[in-house]
Design a protein around this nucleic acid. Structure first.
Lengths: 226, 226, 226, 226
DNA sequence: AATGAATGAGAGTTCATTCAT
DNA sequence: GATGAATGAACTCTCATTCAT
């Protein structure tokens, strides 16, 4: 829309419109800044929680890192707990997005599983704080934890159901697949704990042979002879 | 009961007893009381941590529950952290003992696995605080966590190696079994989180159909058709 | 109604109206709104102070109740204290007006006193916040308190001097009557505290027998036999 | 019971007693210090409340004046409010004691009243903070206020009932005297407010002519001619 | 004139640790 | 060895006031 044309046509109304437009233009930065500040607090909190845990993520520390005054915090969150509960869902979205991108184009169900598995570890390698944020959340931020857990499980479940419908995954009822989903999510985080965090040196990467072992386990089970 | 006969088999406490016997009689009750006090603090801490977590396990709370004075704490532990690190190994021993008893007499490797699996959940049903104690320990008491984790993994590994030596478990090298062990330990705790803690009502028990699903997964794997 | 005729008798508001009439039409609504806003703040503050006291009468609370933005407050008052000092005189006028109306038509000095006494308690029953507003003002809003106290005392004094001039009240010099006035004002508020606020149930009314006792005390004094 | 006789009879018990006595002697300084500290906090609080009011009597200020660390406060009081409620009864005892001493030896009921009246104002002259402490307590420390008010009223009432029994005060039933007591207490504090606090210069004393006016009022009432 | 986001000082309270007794 | 009073730093949260819009 050309603004010039309106000037001559309706000077008063146009003036008004222009004013509003200007005022909106002036107010938008405010709204934008508000979102920016809120996100700055979330980002700062996510980083701090990932580094030192929920307990030591004090408001002083968070606001300082976000470049805001102490009191400003309460313009964006009702309480410290309110923010802490929001941290995990905030970063959880990132992980989900990252995995979805890496999985797209997988050839079959097993490929989906492997790509998703590798993507998760790649994300963790880049965001080493996520693991701690997730783990401690169970008791330090139970609401956010439940939210993230549900989201992750639902996405995982949907993926498995698609594989099932395509006939690529047999032997389990839908109800049983719920159990399987939790088992697979569990495995990811314990393998991270054992082979990346504790034993992984500085690379932050899961050794290739562990990936292979995981895939073997997935494919063939334990092959007990009983 | 004669103490002499037990000397050769005696655990540390027995050795202590012997030592005590050689020292002055008057000091003996003191040494005993010291051990008693230390254990009282550990027991109190274990209970409190299980209920409210490491963060809220204050020294005041612990000493009060243990029936000791606040300041007495520092006669037995160097710091609050020192005690917190000791809590998980303290209670972890109990779990290990409980499982060992339940597993004894298993017919074969799969049976060992199932008995051990069921025993773990039975223990958790009776000691609902253990789960929290273990989970939060990873960051709140990392030394104790590592100790407990190593112990548990080693015991599990030893069991699997025995199965392997007996030819009851094939397809995985020893190195790979290390991965499997962590995967199985992971599964236990996520299934607890999902199907007992969150969904289990008051019983604190794992539903039978979940056990069956777990065993099926263990036996046959996921049966992907690729 | 013609406004011209009222000009000579008109209170300040009427004068304001006249002033407005002579100034530019476009600015009038602004001036009106300004007064409205200021009064809205005073009214809101009066209500809040009566309910929760001066301390908890925060600017946020007051502006919210007045339907104005937080920052707008400082267009009408220099500071929070500035407003608080204005609250008591604001509501004090109402009480004075109410009493004056009730007293009009009294037969004699004692009747004036009784009508005034009853009117005060009736007002307090309808405006239970006034008592707190007055009581706390002594230290929380000393300027407003002094203003209100002087006003009330002067009115009371003028009334007594009229009685004295009419020969209905003897035995006290003018100077002494100043003391008497304060004693009588004191009595009202302690009787409210004791027999209405603490003991009065939900009615908010002073029991009739207390009124009678007060009147007896006034008439005859304590009748000490010395 | 004589203790000597027991020494020979029960040496052990006696030894114990002696020990206890020693340990008590050692512990007494502790107990004494505790009382001292608590009183130091109360004294500091009383002084500060008298000077700047309850609102500004912060724990930091109080502990500093008492010469204790900030955190020490909570060894002696549950909360700031807990201390504030205790302040008025603490200083109220002093006033009551002071009045009782001054009143002793009064010749008759009116003399009691005058001595008590003068004593109250003398106390207030020496303790100018008491007035504020009492006045603000009604809303800032309502529990302590009620306690002090009840105590004062009961003492006053008991005194008037004695006068009544001696036949020195007639014309009021016991129930009515309750009203009278509150009226007289009220008068004291408003006269202080008007003729000492606001108008009294530095002396802090009630002018003699005000006392005389009060006594005249008390004796003869207002002598209305109706 | 009106807004409400931003500030930062200061409030009450907790608690690991020390130390005189 | 045992006690518990004492400490003071650190915490979360509130709010009068300012100021860019």
């Amino acid at each position: 829309m050309s603004r010039r044309k309106q000037i001559s046509l309706a000077p008063k109304a146009a003036a008004n419109t222009t004013l509003r437009a200007t005022s909106k233009r002036r107010k938008l930065p405010r709204a934008e800044k508000a979102i920016e500040n809120r996100n700055a607090l979330l980002r700062a909190a996510a980083q701090i929680v990932g580094e030192v845990g929920y307990q030591d993520a004090s408001i002083a520390r968070i606001t300082q890192k976000a470049g805001l005054a102490h009191g400003t915090f309460y313009l964006y969150f009702d309480s410290r707990q309110d923010l802490l509960e929001a941290v995990l869902p905030f970063v959880g979205e990132e992980l989900a997005l990252f995995i979805r991108q890496r999985v797209s184009g997988a050839k079959n169900a097993l490929d989906v599983e492997e790509k998703s598995f590798r993507a998760a570890f790649e994300y963790l390698a880049r965001n080493p704080g996520f693991y701690r944020t997730l783990n401690e959340a169970e008791f330090a931020a139970p609401v956010g934890f439940a939210k993230q857990f549900d989201n992750a499980a639902h996405r995982y479940m949907a993926s498995m159901l698609r594989s099932k419908e395509r006939g690529e995954l047999e032997g389990y009822t839908t109800k049983e697949l719920d159990v399987v989903v939790y088992m697979l999510m569990a495995i990811r985080f314990y393998l991270y704990l054992r082979f990346v965090k504790d034993d992984g040196g500085d690379s932050g990467r899961l050794p290739e042979w562990v990936v292979k072992t995981y895939m073997k386990f997935l494919r063939g089970g334990l092959n007990y002879k009983n």
